[in-house]
Simulated scan of single mutants.
Amino acid sequence: MVDLTSEMAQLWASLGPPPPGPARVIQFIGARSGEGTSTVAREFARFAAERTRRAVWLVDLDFADSGQYRAIAAEPERFGPLGAAAAASPDGSCFFTVQPPARDAEGRVVADSRYLVAHPVGGSKLWVTRFRRELLQAGQGVGVVQAPDYWNALRRNAELVVVDAPALDRAQTGPLVAPFMDFSVLVLAEGGAEAGDALALKAAIEGAGGRCAGIVFNRVSLQPPGFLKAVLR
């Protein structure tokens, strides 16, 4: 286990505390797999939940592997035990769609929101989402919904939403949701990241209509990240 408290304090100060009103939604995304993006996002959400008055949501955009749920479940002594699953959509909206839609025993279409649950983490204000991949049937696929509805619903029911996106070399999920984020934080492995990776990631986010807040250089995937750097010009 790596304690990133001091690094998260620097990142918190760099981004500034959540403003009053609707929750701020911050996406963390890397250019390549293995750069430690999920670790940074998870530790930032944990740090934030200790300092906010209302809920902090950690939304995992990885449909193939709910890595945030598994990582938190594996460290109950650090995060606290996971509570029972609850609906992860306050109003039935969702940031993805499952196609072709399944039908229940009465022939009704299964809502997309049924595939996503959230678990409370210990006694903190932190919630982590989990995609219910086990419900998928043969031939079904998952696609991102490019609409703000889900994110706006979370804004009304939390103080901060931390979004963990798959690396750009794995999926385009991050750029697809970027327009609905307040901003995206780019995570790159210090020493392994190339300037071209950073520029390509920044271009992908901004080209999709998103806004980049800056870059966290992660020294290695299992070591503390450097604090937020200026966005590439």
Rank of each mutant, 00 (worst) to 15 (best):
V161T: 11
L154Y: 05
G21L: 07
L136Y: 04
A198R: 11
L232D: 11
R133V: 14
D65Y: 15
R53N: 10
G207F: 11
L4Q: 13
F180C: 08
V220D: 15
F217D: 02
L135K: 12
K202M: 05
R53Y: 08
I26W: 07
A23N: 00
K202G: 02
L135W: 15
A55D: 10
G36V: 00
R170E: 15
L188Q: 14
A153V: 10
G107T: 11
A87P: 15
A74G: 10
A198F: 06
G16D: 02
T5E: 13
Q10E: 14
A203P: 01
T5C: 01
A230K: 12
V128C: 04
F227H: 13
L135C: 06
G21R: 05
G30M: 01
I72N: 00
P81E: 14
S93C: 09
R32S: 10
A48C: 06
A85C: 12
Q140T: 05
F183M: 10
G209Q: 03
A193N: 06
Q146L: 12
L176M: 15
Y69V: 03
S14Q: 09
Q172I: 14
D182C: 08
L61W: 09
F183T: 12
E43Q: 12
A31R: 02
W127D: 02
L58G: 01
P90A: 13
L4N: 11
L82S: 07
L61A: 09
L186S: 00
M8E: 04
V162F: 05
A189Q: 15
A41I: 00
T173K: 07
T39G: 14
R211D: 11
E206H: 07
A178W: 07
T5S: 13
A171R: 14
I29S: 08
L188D: 07
M8G: 01
Q137I: 09
Q27H: 09
C212H: 00
L135V: 04
A195I: 13
G80A: 08
A193T: 10
H119A: 06
P166S: 06
P148A: 02
R51I: 03
G36I: 02
L201R: 01
I215P: 01
R170P: 06
V216E: 04
R155T: 04
P100G: 12
L222N: 14
M181F: 09
V59R: 02
L168A: 06
F28Y: 00
A118D: 08
A73M: 08
Q223A: 15
L222Y: 12
K202T: 13
G36F: 02
V187T: 02
F96L: 12
E190Y: 13
H119G: 06
W57V: 12
R132N: 13
A153Q: 08
W12Y: 04
A208I: 07
C212W: 03
D164H: 00
P148E: 04
K202Y: 01
T97N: 13
R233M: 10
E77G: 15
A105H: 10
G83D: 10
R42W: 00
G196T: 09
P225D: 03
L126Q: 04
I29F: 00
R133D: 11
G80F: 07
G226I: 05
L188G: 09
G34L: 03
F95H: 12
K229V: 11
K125W: 03
